[in-house]
């Protein structure tokens, strides 16, 4: 369960204050997939970072499983998994070594980690490459390793930052399947993306960010009612035009 309340973040760029996120609130329930959508520069990544506790909000707060991120940051991080577009692998480590390394970073008990490794390897079809150096993996294999990495500590909340960017159809399918697994396990998933077609397929609810503010929020039906348009893409174009008109 994620509860974000009135998040606000300002950055100083060359002496000028730039509001990246302004009073953004949303909730993600257990077993729910929430799409945080918006064009580039809308404030998605900053919002995600505030949820992670990597960036401290100037105002507002985030609660994960009832704990505020500014109260017990370490505890919050145990609850969170993170998978992002830019995630890399360690070229000189084997897949097994890398996954166990992350289990250690999350202070997972070694025996538990080893059991989970076997389970995740089956789930994501990486059993055959467990002892291969990461530098020898294909893009698809690397992606599956990254997905497995996000689950090594079995977090109740998963943050996905543009997880399909740069992936082909097969790669994207793997991600969708992964999201389905997360949903079926009752995890709260916060998905940030600008691929609206994908979002429409996998998300239960949406939040449309533009210029750092939450413009529309709700299920697809809610959004349709609010905007009078059928598809996310159309809603977006309207939003951006509106912004240009200002």
């Amino acid at each position: 369960m994620i509860v974000a309340t009135k998040l606000r973040k300002e950055f100083q760029v060359r002496g000028k204050a730039l509001v990246a996120v302004d009073r953004v609130s949303f909730q993600v329930g257990n077993g729910e997939v929430y799409g945080l959508l918006g064009p580039n520069g809308a404030g998605k990544t900053t919002t995600l970072r505030m949820v992670m506790g990597l960036v401290e909000p100037d105002e507002g707060y985030v609660e994960i499983g009832g704990i505020r991120t500014d109260v017990d940051r370490a505890q919050i991080r145990h609850q969170l998994g993170l998978i992002s577009t830019n995630d890399g692998v360690y070229p000189w480590l084997s897949v097994r070594e890398m996954l166990l390394y992350f289990a250690d970073l999350y202070a997972v008990d070694l025996d538990v980690a080893k059991t989970r490794l076997v389970e995740l390897a089956q789930l994501l079809d990486i059993e055959s490459i467990l002892d291969q150096r990461c530098s020898t993996l294909s893009t698809g294999q690397k992606q599956r390793v990254t997905l497995a990495r996000g689950l090594m500590h079995d977090p109740p909340v998963m943050l996905l930052d543009e997880p399909t960017r740069g992936l082909d159809v097969v790669g994207s399918q793997t991600v969708f399947r992964f999201i389905e697994i997360l949903r079926s396990r009752g995890k709260s998933v916060l998905l940030s993306t600008h691929r609206l077609d994908e979002a429409e397929r996998v998300c239960d609810r949406f939040g449309l960010l533009h210029h750092g503010t939450m413009r529309y929020e709700g299920t697809l039906d809610d959004l349709r009612a609010q905007t009078g348009r059928d598809h996310l893409v159309d809603m977006f174009i309207a939003l951006i035009r509106e912004g240009e008109g200002n």
């Binding site: 990597l54 370490a74 991080r77 993170l82 992002s84 995630d87 890399g88 999350y106 990495r149």
Partner: peptide, 18 residues
């Protein structure tokens, strides 16, 4: 550069330990 920093920093492991 490899893109492993963020995933590492996002873990609860204290920076000093890392």
């Amino acid at each position: 550069e490899r893109g492993t920093m963020e995933a590492m920093i996002a873990t609860p492991a204290p920076r000093f330990v890392l």
